[in-house]
């Protein structure tokens, strides 16, 4: 995955709560077996049915930081939601609350999810609405979001931050511990189930 160190771009205020993954990318787009090319499905229902939807407003074209309401990414485990946001040009999402699986998925593909208090999210909404050209910097190295003269620190655990800064993928890291895995496996009780061989009556 691509490393994330710092990113500067314009932002779009998505002032909705509970933006679920079916809105970020509907199920029909999940039939594809590729890992890229999901931008056409990103928020497609809202983009199609609501002429005033923020992503249809020209002043926010080209934005790369999504500033969303609380409980962003609820619903399904589809990592396609993260891919669609990346394919749609977003590098970071800011919200006061994220659904767990979405947040976890985002860390696997280099989309930075930034947790800020709701008051800071609202201040950012106001700043961006007042001037959509406002440059927002999301700095993972310094763990802060800055725009104009405002600097807001954010928390992220050191390990995830390190992985993102280095662009490391988990499988490679875990493979350093294959001995531990084998040791664990040799101590598992024999009665634990296995799918193979199949025990279904034919």
């Amino acid at each position: 995955m691509d490393a994330f160190i710092t990113h500067t771009g314009t932002a779009v205020p998505l002032k909705r709560t509970n933006v679920d993954t079916d809105q970020i990318i509907p199920a029909e787009y999940l039939k594809r077996i590729t890992r890229t090319g999901f931008e056409d499905g990103l928020f497609v229902a809202w983009r199609t049915n609501e002429p005033d939807f923020v992503l249809n407003q020209p002043q926010y074209a080209g934005a790369s930081v999504l500033v969303a309401g609380p409980d962003f990414g609820t619903g399904s485990s589809r990592e396609h939601a993260v891919w669609a946001l990346l394919d749609g040009g977003f590098r970071a999402v800011i919200s006061s609350r994220f659904a767990d699986i979405f947040r976890n998925n985002s860390t696997k593909s280099g989309l930075l999810t930034v947790l800020l208090p709701q008051a800071d999210v609202e201040a950012l909404w106001a700043a961006v609405e007042a001037d959509p050209t406002t440059q927002v910097t999301v700095d993972l190295q310094a763990k802060q979001v800055t725009y104009r003269d405002v600097t807001v620190p954010f928390e992220i655990d050191d390990y995830t931050r390190w992985r993102l800064l280095e662009g490391l993928d988990d499988v490679g890291l875990t493979e350093r511990h294959l001995d531990d895995i084998s040791r664990y496996e040799s101590a598992r009780p024999a009665w634990l189930p296995a799918a193979l061989p199949s025990r279904s009556p034919a």
Binding site: K108, D170, T174
Partner: peptide
């Protein structure tokens, strides 16, 4: 619990999850 596709790959490869 549910996991994303990157984690599916991780479990397929290692039978573990961080």
């Amino acid at each position: 619990f549910g996991i994303g596709t990157s984690e599916v790959e991780h479990v397929l490869a290692t039978q573990t999850l961080p």
